[in-house]
Structures are given as C-alpha cells and as structure tokens.
Design a binder for these strands. Sequence first.
RNA 1: CGGGGUAUAGCACAGUCCGGUUAGUGUGCCUGCUUUGGGAGCAGGAGGUCGCAGGUUCGAAUCCUGCUACCCCGACCA
Length: 491
Amino acid sequence: MAKELTSMKENYSQWYNDLVVKADLAENSAVRGCMVIKPYGYAIWEKMQAELDRMFKETGHVNAYFPLFIPKSFFSKEADHVEGFAKECAVVTHYRLKNAPDGKGVVVDPAAKLEEELIVRPTSETIIWNTYKNWIQSWRDLPILCNQWANVVRWEMRTRLFLRTAEFLWQEGHTAHATKQEAIDETFKMVNVYASFAENFMAMPVIKGHKSANERFAGALDTLCIEALMQDGKTLQAGTSHFLGQNFAKAFDVKFADKEGKLEYVWATSWGVSTRLMGALVMAHSDDNGLVLPPKLAPFQVVIVPIYKKDDQLKGISEKVAEIEKQLKAEGISVKYDDSDAKKPGWKFAEYELKGVPVRLAIGPRDLENGTVEVARRDTLTKEVVNIEGIEKYVAGLLEKIQDGIYQKALDFRDKHITSVDTWDEFKDVLANKGGFISAHWDDSPETEQKIKDETKATIRCIPFDAVEEKGKCIYSGKPSNKRVLFGIAY
RNA sequence: CGGGGUAUAGCACAGUCCGGUUAGUGUGCCUGCUUUGGGAGCAGGAGGUCGCAGGUUCGAAUCCUGCUACCCCGACCA
C-alpha cells in the first residue's frame, strides 16, 4: 500500500528504478545526471569498499589520492585516450563568481578566465602518469602499485541510478612495472580479484575474458573484464582491468634505468570497479518484493521484530531479544532490533523485505512461552519456528546457506542463458526471444562486430579466458574462426 | 543531441481543454483513544511562492513565450 513496486515482468526498467528509490538506496538529485546515495545504499557500498580495499592491500597495493582536475593539455598526450573521452568531459573555465549587475544572484566573472582549462577527471591515467614520471628513475623504483578511491565525471546523455550517472564513485588502480610480462600478470591478477569479489561477496557469477578491439579502453592494448548477466537477459560489464603497454609511459616520457643502466619505457596497467556494482547487485538477485541482499554485503544481516499487545509484554520480549542480540553479535552477525511502536509488525515485515534484509526474527508472547522464535529468510520467503536455544549457530548457518543459495540461483540462471548458436537466424532469434549470452564464432574483425551491432544492438561482451579451440565459421561473415566469443545486449 | 511525455502538500494524483468562491483527493505527518503473529481503526489537526522567469488579462494552476529538471524511445558510453 505505502510502497508498491512495479513488477519485473510488467516493466523491468521501472521495477529497477522503483526499487532503488523505495529501498532507500539512492535518489535523483537537483543536479542533472547526478544521484544522492542514501545511507542505506551507501552502507552497502562501504561494505564493498572495505572488502575490495582489503583484497587490494593483500595483493600488495597501497592507496593514494590524485587531483580531481586535470590540465587540458595532459589529455591530448595520448591520442586514443583523448578520443575516447573527449565527448564526455566537464570543463572548468573560470575560477570566480561575482554579483550580477542587475543585483539578482551571481554570474561568472569573465575576468577570472583560466589560462588553461581544467578537465574534471573522467579517469586519472594522465595526471597519474604525469606524476609517476617524477617518481620513477630506476628499476629500484618499480613496481608502483597504487590505488585511489575517488569520484569521476563522465557527461552522459542518458543516466540511470547507479548504472550510468554523470558523477560516480569508484576505485582506480594504476600500476607501473619494469617488464611487459609483469604488467600483464598484474592485469590478470586484478581481474581475478574482481571475479572473486563478485562471486564470493556479491554472490554474482561472472565470466572473465578479453574485450574485443571495439570495446577496449581508450589507450589500452588489452582490456580484461568480468561480465555478469542480469535477470532481464541483458549483460553488464562489472569490472575492467587494462594492460596499457607503454602508451602512457611514452606519452608522458616515463623511463627507468634497468639493471644494465639502459633507459626503458615503463609498462602500465589500470583497473577499476564503480558504484555500478550497486546496480548489478540489485539486478542480479532482487524480486517483486524488493531487494535480496547477499548476507556478506547487507548493512545488517538480521532484523528482529517484536510482537506484543502491551508495554509489559514488550519489556519481556526486549529482555529476551537483548540476550539473542548478544549471542548473534558474538558470532559476528550484524543485527537490528526494531522495537519502534510507530509501525505494526506487518508493516515492518514488508519494509525489511523491500530492503532485502537476509534474515528476520519475530518474537511474540507465544514464543516467550515456548522458548522459540520465528525465523524468516528473505531469499526464499520461507518461515519456520526455531528454538531460541542455539539460535546464534542456527542463524550463522542460515546466512551461509542464503549467501550460497542466491549465488547458485544466479549461476543456474546464467548457465541457462548461455546459448551456443551456429546460424545467423538462430542468433537473431535467441537475441530477440531469450536474451543472455550468445556463444558464437566470430571472424576476429572489428568490421564484422560493428555490422552485428548495427543490425542487432548486440556486442561482443568478452572473449572468455576458457574459450576452447574449435574450428568454426563466423556467424555473420562465414569466414573461418577458431573459437567462440560471447555476444549480448549490454547495459 | 533528436522524438514523445511529465512538473500542483513529504509521496501519488485530480483540477488545466473551456481563466472567475477560500486549489482538492488518497497516502504520509502531528495529537488522542483503541490496536499489534503479514503494510490497523476512529476522531481531531498541521501542511501549497500550483517547477522557474517573463507576458496577456479586471482576474492565471489554467492562455502565450522562454528556461530548467525528471521519465520513456533512439544515437553515445562503465
């Protein structure tokens, strides 16, 4: 009644928008294309950050911070890079306002024009490589393994909460290496970190692979990615890791003396994931009742709702709940006890389902008498009555089951939506009627990929690492091919 | 950036075509009482520069012009 969701079936994209707003994850702001991430949504992002940050540090990386503004001239130093980003850059041209002549508000002071315009970073390769130049002289200075948590701006035409906003939050790793192989190894290492995070924490299966030349990052020699499948059959790039070769080292003249004293250009990588992962998380698991959050990322894993008629009943329940809370917390489980009298239990049940809290405990007078508690799990919407004795172990086990259960469910869905096709008619049919990933032969040419995109909107999502050598004919051109790649309609 | 739509109370909407009492309805909010195992009931109450800026008119939520934001569909992109 209070918060009705559009159903997924009726209108998937409306369902997503409703859910993000009604579950209190984010909302549109007064600024075009920019969102406000609300506390409940930000709590999930913080959990993602905390785990990713831990994984980065475990793999030898350190955090640093580089400027938001990038001198325009830096941008043009790497040709592919500037071409890739030029169309979506916000530019700072002035540094001062003054009172409007007519006394109404303020205007830009034309006298305060910047000598050189500043670009609001859409990504930081240029400012970082300009900096690394000063940090690197010898092979002893390498590798540099920096990450930064930051906001970036890409002036998008059409925006959607979390999936595509003009400003978004992300992390960008930027590493410098003495050898090509070391940089390539780093690129693979980080895409594996992303895949492990997606699967173990987001409970979202992903496919690791290479991007085709058309989809490659502007300025990279190779882009590795993790690709996920959403419940509407569209695919979503969830993370990327780029082997940049010596492109940026050459553009910014970053050389080091190797062990023989010879000057060599440095090898580079960059890699990132963004708040887009929030969108992926929503679309991977949620249903018509609201969010379904994996226990490892839920702001709180358990909510306890008291059921009572009179205040003295509530007192007795609250005493029992205090014990349960203590036991759960001792197991490392996060708990919220909602004893507010403002809402009825039924309202709370619906609200916490909408917000995706993995486990709900309800305790009433009947339970106090019997020494039991009602346990409801969000993913399956099932309920059972359990003894309070040993509840902490029971809930701990249940949270693991849920984490595993939603992963398995997403994996089954994903695997059912990878379709091998060998004819162009079949390709178009599967794309239009089933969606998901289409595994097909491709002749390796950008022209063919572009033609397929023009005709069907489908692009090559990735060339999977585990693609098997197999003789075949390109789905479109009929030319020879030696492995299948994955096509799909992307977010 | 092109095509279409929308903007009125915290939220969802009616009223706009055809200008004219004090701008309504639902929900939410506040107070009180009764309620509480799946989105409670009754009674009373507060809450509006009708997106912004101009214009037409005795009079504008309503007509005209410009602007802004959001949604949907395309092109672009993580």
